[in-house]
Each structure stands twice: as structure tokens, then as C-alpha cells.
Design a protein around this nucleic acid. Structure first.
Lengths: 337, 337
DNA sequence: CTCCTGGACTTAAAGGTTTTCGGAAACGTA
DNA sequence: TACGTTTCCGAAAACCTTTAAGTCCAGGAG
């Protein structure tokens, strides 16, 4: 470990100039002679000088740091958003201060206080689901953007995936393949994601004038429920030729159960999942056609808008970002037109 | 958004004292009269005063912030370590500055410089595999600990899971169940994890005087490889009664293929996985007996030792942390003794 | 009465950087 | 020579907090 960190003072004395001149030379300001600048830069390099961000931030009032507040970063969805945000920030000179509140409002308040004390320039709040969450923006001295889980307050800036549109897109894909007896299996109704996806499902069917096969089956977001739902559905509605599942876990279970019942996927029943959770979607047999919510893009977009908000150019409201349908063998096997 | 942030100066004037007195009152120092302290605290509350951590850090030289440098946080293993570390820090008043180098050495250097410029008190480096990685600790003014992926330099502080011991534990479990024809399917040999687990496997068998069934099959860490290996193995060594897989993905594929071949798990073939990746290990049928590397504990331990190192009490060397065998139905079904 | 002690409070310095403003030198022009 | 202009550099303030050192006063001891 190096003994002592060099300050701009050390650089200045080594270069034989004042600290003001050293500062100007290091920051590329104009009124300094080229030869002098050289000397200063050389001195800085020799001492491996790193400007103290604390002192700089203290003076400028900007720390070039943002807080990332997640309710449940162990969750499946927080991570990509986090990566996207870190990506957008890292490209510049921003840094990300990570806090996990674990769904505890007290802890969340605690973290917000700590972040403000560190003078972050802004805050990104990542939800654990797309359910709207209480706003934290009131009386905060810095801008806040919400990613994945929107704020309840429409005056805040939120970014969410377009679940309704994506579900419709998935159903239209099935319709284009000629399927007409399409069922829907999804997660618990207290998830807005489940309700939104069902709404997109219904809309697309209604637009095409096609009736839903059976009733929507609501369960939990698990493979087990997918299997169970498949068994019930194949019993009650044996003539179904496609199913739209609310998650890849459900779809994976569904596919498994369908195959065990001796029906082929996709020839007899086409299956569409949701999330593009690769460990499931690419490893099931056949690989799952599924919706990718583009969460990294969402995180990156949220971060970029936080920049804008820091510069005073906020764009309030809930912004929905498009998803993407990833087509794999569970709806259109290779070699089949 | 609040208009202006209060400083200790504002608090002092509102309370009618000097800033020194205000500081002492706020920090619980002694030589302040109780009544005065009351006044200061009330003033601070009214202005919702938050001490400026930058100014404090500038003075004390301690930022109470650590950098978390990950090579690949999208990876399966970085996340729990990260959570464990964040947990250990969050309990106190530490904050975590997150950086993802994406496996790029240039970017890593860039991030290290940025972190040092921000005057972090220490660094945690999270590897993407247990393969030793180049040390970054030389000439750094702050302590560094390595988690999951150890440093190549034995003078550094590293924490890794005990893959050898865990593999032996898994095999001993199979031996205790009376299995004697045990095979091993694992990932690529350039992963130290694969080599370590194979070593533990061999040690345990040797100690029991039992011969390995077939040769170790090295492939990739995927479900597909697990299936493929199962097919080869059932063909070549039809009499095997157990298999130790190098990952849950491999084990999940293996279980699937075994069942498709009409063999029962665990009655005919017992299967042990590795990682306890719950989406796989609890959702396969039967659920997988598997090794949990206790990565959150590992992350927490690394963080705690970083604290110690910051206080000058480093404990150099590679520390291996015990893993845990999670027993589920793939080795001992419910209702069977 | 004087001196000392200790409590309660204030002053001022320190920490590292940026920036404004003023100063000095060099040079050209009248 | 006197003066104005340009170019380069330095002194000092500002950011906010903590803390060492110093001031002031009341009260007790001698």
C-alpha cells in the first residue's frame, strides 16, 4: 500500500507552480502556458495524483454519484435493471451507490437518509414487481426516477415494461400461426403484471374475433403450477392448440406436463412464456418462445432520464417501454414454415 | 423538492449558538449543557439537517464507503456475494459503491481509479469463477479482499467456498445411502471449480475404498450436457446407482434423461447437484439434493474481514468457507428411511 | 480578597479543490 | 517614455464539518 496520497499541493510544488495553476493545467483550462502544463502533468503522473472527489464535490455541490434503491435485489428483475443503470452511468463518470431495503419501509427511509447525507445527485428506485409503490419523492432535494415498479404519484418519473402490448404481441404471434383455441395460465391476480398480461391477451383475441379457450387460470409463478394447470387444462379443454403463460416458469412446467401427456409441442400445443429467463427458456425442450422485457434497456433509460432530471429536464409520468418477442421452437420448430 | 439544504451553520444560528457547540450537541459530545443541546437538536430537526458526509470525510479521511468490483455481476455467483456484503455493510453505516468491469481489464483499471478518487475505505473484488485472478492490491492505498474468485497473490486476503470438502461431503452422503457405483459428470476442466469438485469426489471414494463408476465426464455447465452425459453413461455403465453432478444445471438435465430412459430417481439412480440454484434444484422432479456454497455468508464474511483490514487487522491468505449439503428427494425420497 | 478549577461556550484552523480576481511581465503603439 | 493590451500566474475565498485551543465566568478554597 502506498504511504500517502498526493494532493494537488504536492503536484504544484513538484512542478514549481501555485496550486491554482496546477488546477488549471490539470483541468485543461486555457490560461496556462503549454510548457507549464507539461510540467504539471508530468508531476501529477509521477506522484500518481488522483483528485480528491470529496473536496471537489464539497465545492461544486455535485458528487456525480447516484443512489440505487432496490426493494428486493435478490429478485429476478432488479438485477438487469441495475446492470443497465450501472452501464449508463459507468459510461460517463458516474458511480452507483447500492442499497437494498429488503421490502422494509423503515430500512428504506434509513437508506434514503444515508444517501442524502452522502449528497447523491439523484435516486433510482427499482421495484420488485410492476405494482405501483408509494412515492418517496416528496420533500427530497434530489430527483428520483422509478424503474420497473412505478410510483403511485403520477407527477413522478417512472419506467415500466409494456406488459399489455407484449401480451398482445404474443397472442398475435399465435394467431398468425393459425392457432385459434388459445388458453391463458398466469400468476396471482394481485400482481399488476398478471392483470396487464391478461388484458393484452384479451384485447388481442377480441380484436381478432377469437374466443378464449377456457378461463384464465391464476396460480403462482412456479413451474409446479404450470404443470398442474396443464393437467387441468388438457382435461377440461382437450382441444386447445396454444397457451400463453404469464411467466417462463409456468411455461416450463406447462411444456413438461404437455409432453408427458403425449401431446407434442408445438405441433399439438404451441406455448409462449414470459420473461426470457434464459436458464429456463433456452433449456426446456423445445426452447421457449417468450417475451423479453428488455430490462437492461429499461434500466439504462431510467438512468439517462435521471441525468436529464438532474439537469432540470424531468419528464414526469409513467413511461412504458416496448418488449420484444423472442421466437423459439415452442411455437415454430426449426424446419417448419 | 426542498429548496436548500441546511448546514450546521443554519442550525447553529437558529439555535443561537456557535457551530462548534452545534457540532458537539449533534454528536453527543460532553461539554454542552442539556438545555443547549435540546435547542440545537430542535433546530436541526426543524431544518431537517443532514450532516454533509463529504465535508466530514474530507476532514476525517474516512468515507465509510467501500467499492465492490465485480467482473461479471450478471453471473450466477456475484449476486449473493454482493447481497451478503451489502448486508454486512448496511447493518452499520457503510455504503457500497458498485462497479461492474464486465471482464475487461481496462475497464477494471478505470473503475479502480474512479473508486480511489472517491476515497473508498476498501475494496471487495468478486470473481466470476473460483479460478484465481490477477491481484490488484499492489500499490493501492486501501485494503482489498477477494470473494469467490481468489487472488493469485497469497499475500492478499481471499475467501472461497470449500469445493473439495463439499464434493467429498456429497459423495459421503451417497455412500451412506449404500450406493457403490457412483459416477461424476461435471463442467469444463479449465474451471478450478470442476477440478476441485472432482478432487473431493475422488478423495471420498478413495477413503471408502470404492472405485469410481466410469470416467469423469467433462462438458459444459448446461442442462443439455447433463442430458447428453446421462444418455452416454446409462449406455456405457448401465449398472451405476448414483451420480455426482458438478452443477444443478447438469443435474437437472441428468435427472430428466434418466427418467426418460425409464429409470427411477433416486431408487435406481441417486443424483446430487451443486449450487442450490433454487429455480432448478427445487423445481426438478424429484427436487435435487445439492451443495449450497453459502455465498451470502461468504460475502458477509469477506465484508467483515474488509472492516478488520481497514482497521489494520488483515488476515492474509486464501480462506475456504464450508459449504452445506441440502438433502432433497433426488437422493432420499420422502417416506423412505 | 485572590487564586484556582472546571464548566460552557467560541474562535480558528484544517482538510483538498476550484474559481475569481488581481498582479506582473512582455510587448506593441503613440 | 508613457500607456494600453495580452498572456500567464498566484493569492485567497469558498464549500462544510470537526476539533484543539482559548475565553469567560461562577464558585470554591485558601
Amino acid at each position: 500500500m502506498a504511504v500517502k496520497r498526493a494532493t494537488i499541493n504536492d503536484v504544484a510544488s513538484l512542478a514549481g507552480v501555485s496550486i491554482a495553476t496546477a488546477s488549471k493545467a490539470l483541468n485543461g483550462r486555457q490560461d496556462v502556458r503549454a510548457a507549464t502544463r507539461e510540467r504539471v502533468l508530468a508531476a501529477a503522473a509521477e506522484l500518481s495524483f488522483q483528485p480528491n472527489a470529496l473536496a471537489r464535490g464539497l465545492l461544486s455541490g455535485q458528487t456525480r454519484t447516484v443512489g440505487l434503491l432496490t426493494s428486493d435485489s435478490v429478485g429476478r428483475f432488479g438485477i438487469p435493471v441495475l446492470l443497465g443503470a450501472e452501464d449508463a452511468f459507468g459510461a460517463g463518470e458516474m458511480a452507483v451507490l447500492l442499497c437494498d431495503a429488503r421490502g422494509d419501509a423503515i430500512r428504506e427511509q434509513h437508506h434514503i437518509r444515508a444517501l442524502l447525507s452522502r449528497r447523491v445527485d439523484g435516486l433510482i428506485v427499482v421495484g420488485e414487481s410492476t405494482n405501483p409503490r408509494p412515492s418517496i419523492s416528496k420533500d427530497l432535494p434530489v430527483p428520483v426516477v422509478y424503474a420497473y415498479g412505478p410510483s403511485e404519484d403520477p407527477a413522478d418519473v417512472s419506467f415500466v415494461p409494456d406488459d399489455v402490448g407484449a401480451a398482445a404481441m404474443a397472442v398475435n404471434h399465435l394467431l398468425a400461426l393459425g392457432r385459434r383455441r388459445i388458453a391463458h395460465v398466469t400468476g396471482p391476480g394481485h400482481y399488476k403484471a398478471a392483470r396487464d398480461r391478461e388484458e393484452g391477451f384479451r384485447q388481442a383475441l377480441a380484436e381478432a374475433g377469437v374466443a378464449q379457450a377456457g378461463r384464465t387460470l391464476s396460480g403462482v409463478w412456479s413451474q409446479r403450477w404450470g404443470r398442474h394447470a396443464a393437467e387441468m387444462l388438457l382435461m377440461a379443454e382437450p382441444e386447445i392448440d396454444a397457451v400463453f403463460c404469464g411467466s417462463d416458469q409456468i411455461a416450463a412446467g406447462f411444456v413438461e406436463a404437455v409432453r408427458e401427456r403425449g401431446r407434442r409441442v408445438p405441433d399439438d400445443v404451441a406455448v409462449v412464456g414470459y420473461d426470457n429467463w434464459e436458464v429456463l427458456s433456452t433449456e426446456t425442450r423445445p426452447a421457449l418462445t417468450t417475451v423479453d422485457m428488455n430490462l437492461e434497456v429499461l434500466g439504462r433509460t431510467a438512468a439517462q432520464h435521471l441525468f436529464a432530471a438532474i439537469d432540470g429536464k424531468a419528464t414526469p409520468g409513467v413511461h412504458t417501454l416496448p418488449c420484444q418477442l423472442v421466437i423459439r421452437d415452442s411455437t415454430s420448430p426449426p424446419g417448419v414454415s
